[in-house]
């Protein structure tokens, strides 16, 4: 890791050094603040978050078991879904009744767990769409190419630059629909960056991406932080979480159950119970099967006794 990268992580960690390791802890410089947000689907309370702050300029990971409400929480933050109760703020501004596209304009841009690339547009066109404040996107200016061609050229330059970073530059003229699942993840992330967001929200960015590319993606995400962006991501890949996040928020059954820097979260008993499992740190093949069996039997026994 280059020295300056190390330094910036150091700075991010320093900013969070005094923050308590407990759910709802106050941060020195929050970009997003959430208060008492709930979202009910029929009888299921999918999200019920009391208070949560996301620190500016750091990488925050959101982890939790399947069905914990992480994606719903994402939708609520970005305006793709409306909470039943509660408030959320971006840079101190309330997002109540703010449409999803306006949230994006305010600087909070997301990707989707199930990628949404625009299949029948080329990779480059997908990228160009991401650019903001395009004069050519106005109806009256559309036919007058001389008005927007300069801006389009600059956007194309920036798009190519990003595509190179994400190793998609050879594909720029292919239909996005012809990309593989992993490549679509990359394209979606690159496209989100075209918006030049303040806060980028990645929903499982590493799912389906091969190991070599994963390494370089990790580098990209870190460099986003170094450029001053805030990153919030949902991920099941614990290596990634450990490697790049400065802060980890753990959700289970719709609520935030723990918060803290990665090393302390990984050893938090509640997190291990709810999500990681006791052997999350060991390679499965290294475990002694008999030992596991014995442990499981002991647990079952204990439960039986508890019930009795």
């Amino acid at each position: 890791m280059p020295a300056d990268l190390e330094k910036s992580r150091g700075a991010a960690a320093a900013a969070l050094a005094d923050v308590a390791h407990e759910p709802g802890a106050a941060k020195p410089d929050p970009i997003v603040v959430v208060d008492n947000i709930t979202r009910q689907f029929g009888g299921l309370k999918a999200v019920d978050v009391g208070h949560l702050e996301i620190q500016r300029g750091v990488i925050t990971a959101l982890i939790g078991p399947n069905g914990a409400g992480k994606t719903t929480f994402f939708n609520l933050l970005t305006g793709f879904d409306t909470p039943d109760t509660g408030e959320r703020y971006l840079n101190g501004k309330s997002l109540k009744r703010v449409a999803a596209y306006k949230v994006a304009k305010l600087g909070m841009v997301r990707t989707f767990q199930l990628t949404k690339v625009l299949s029948k547009l080329t990779v480059l066109e997908n990228m160009r769409l991401g650019a903001t404040s395009q004069l050519g996107e106005r109806f009256w200016a559309g036919p007058l190419a001389f008005l927007w061609s300069g801006q389009e050229k600059a956007n194309t330059e920036r798009a190519r630059e990003l595509l190179r970073r994400f190793k998609l530059d050879a594909k720029e003229n292919d239909f996005a629909g012809s990309l593989s699942g992993g490549q679509r993840k990359l394209l979606e992330m690159a496209r989100a960056l075209m918006v030049e967001p303040e806060l980028v929200m990645l929903d499982e960015p590493m799912a389906g991406v091969n190991p070599a590319l994963k390494q370089s993606l990790l580098g990209h995400v870190k460099s986003l932080r170094d450029e001053g962006m805030t990153v919030l991501f949902v991920e099941h890949d614990m290596d990634m979480v450990r490697d790049i996040s400065d802060w980890v928020v753990v959700m289970a059954a719709g609520a935030v159950i723990a918060e803290g820097p990665p090393h302390s979260i990984m050893s938090d008993q509640r997190v291990i119970d709810a999500y990681l499992g006791a052997h999350h740190d060991t390679d499965i093949s290294d475990l002694d099967p008999e030992e596991i069996l014995a442990e499981a039997e002991a647990e079952i026994e204990a439960e039986k006794e508890g019930n009795a």
Binding site: F112, L118, A192
Partner: peptide
């Protein structure tokens, strides 16, 4: 192709 994708980009 996908309205939500377009929305997520601020349009």
């Amino acid at each position: 192709e996908d309205e939500d994708a377009v929305r997520s980009l601020g349009k």
